[in-house]
Amino acid sequence: MEPLRTHKGLVCPLNRTNVDTDQIIPKQFLKRIERSGFGQFLFYHWRFDDNGNPRPDFPLNDAKYKDASILVAGENFGCGSSREHAPWAVQDFGFKVIIAPSYADIFKNNCVKNGILAIQASEEQVQAIMEKAESEGYTLTVNLEEQVVYDHEGLEVKFDIAPYPKQMLLNGWDEIGVTLTYEEKINHYELVHQQP
């Protein structure tokens, strides 16, 4: 996993609440057995009509957000199914950071495992960013070490993140590798609890 320390990128607003993972990546695309290539299906039925033509009113189809790498959305982003294909699609499309007032637990976890930073900001802050992102070329800079997001117009949002996911993201650790350094402890647990 690639470490994520600072990131500067174009912001794309998705002004919807309770965006579920069925919308992020519809089920017909869950049949692939690879981890890659899901970006083309991101928000598929919101992005494309029944004939596969892009819907012009959907932000991800707007030319000004073509190179966006920061997604801003409404509360409870990523609710529903546990499918990790959702963060894979978000990432494969080019997003590295998400900003929303709240997230579903499993989705948020899945983001960390893939090196995506899911920032929690207040509803007012998110609204403010959404409005600014309406204008062409609006970028934000994220500094994970300092836990802050800012633009060049004076907006500054401090955010909370637990120490563990922060370290994971900063260092891009392979979590299994980390856990295996505790193998003795796991052996001991199994001995005491008589696991096979």
Partner: peptide
């Protein structure tokens, strides 16, 4: 859990 966690549980 997500698929990364599935892998984690399988391994550890």
């Amino acid at each position: 859990i997500g698929t990364s966690e599935v892998e984690h549980v399988l391994a550890t």
